[in-house]
């Protein structure tokens, strides 16, 4: 199994910083911004993005967590149920600019589920999509507004995002895998 690092700890930090700057720039500040990350690693990245925006604009940006398990579209194909984790959006998202954060953008199905779920919470002014790695192979018409790094991959590769809070290290690697039938 070949394994290659595509983002180091420093690369991750720089990517988060750049994304934060781009968000602030495009939204002309951070007044109506809220950041919502997708469980688990997206939520951790969301914390960082929100902190960075706060540093730049000297404000506190609300952060929420979204668990999209219950909105997934592969329900009828599963043997076991994924563990449902917490969704915490302790603020109103009506008329807000929601920055949706995730670690990897691949087929676009997770983003689709997240968009459905978010719109059940209210009617944001905009939803913008920030991801650390875009690995291509989209199955839905979805693109990210903010991308840490584009990493061209083949389908028999897997992208592993490690985040210090849960994995002990910040790092993104690409690995060859034998089995391509694993869950997307």
């Amino acid at each position: 199994m070949k394994k290659a690092q595509v983002l180091s700890k420093e690369d991750v930090r720089r990517a988060v910083t750049r994304i934060a700057h781009e968000i602030v720039e495009r939204n002309h500040g951070a007044d109506d911004l809220v950041v919502i990350g997708i469980q688990t690693r997206g939520a951790l990245l969301a914390e960082r993005v929100a902190l960075k925006i706060g540093e730049i604009e000297h404000v506190t940006v609300p952060v929420g967590i979204l668990d999209i398990t219950l909105y997934r579209d592969d329900f009828r194909k599963r043997l076991k149920q994924p563990l449902v984790k917490a969704t915490k959006i302790p603020f109103d998202i009506d008329d807000k600019d929601v920055i949706l954060v995730d670690d990897v953008l691949y087929t676009g199905r997770t983003a689709r589920a997240a968009l459905d779920e978010l719109t059940d919470f209210g009617r944001p002014r905009t939803i913008q999509y920030a991801i650390l790695v875009d690995r291509g192979h989209r199955e839905f018409p979805i693109r990210a507004d903010y991308v840490g790094k584009n990493v061209p991959t083949s389908r028999n590769q897997e992208v592993f995002v490690k985040i210090e809070e849960v994995d002990g290290i910040d790092e993104v690697t690409v690995e060859e895998v034998e089995d391509t039938g694993s869950e997307k």
Binding site: T69, L79, K80, Q81, P82, L83, V104, T110, E158, E183
Partner: peptide
């Protein structure tokens, strides 16, 4: 690619 912790009764 998202890895899900799946559990069943």
């Amino acid at each position: 690619m998202r890895r899900w912790r799946t559990l069943a009764l």
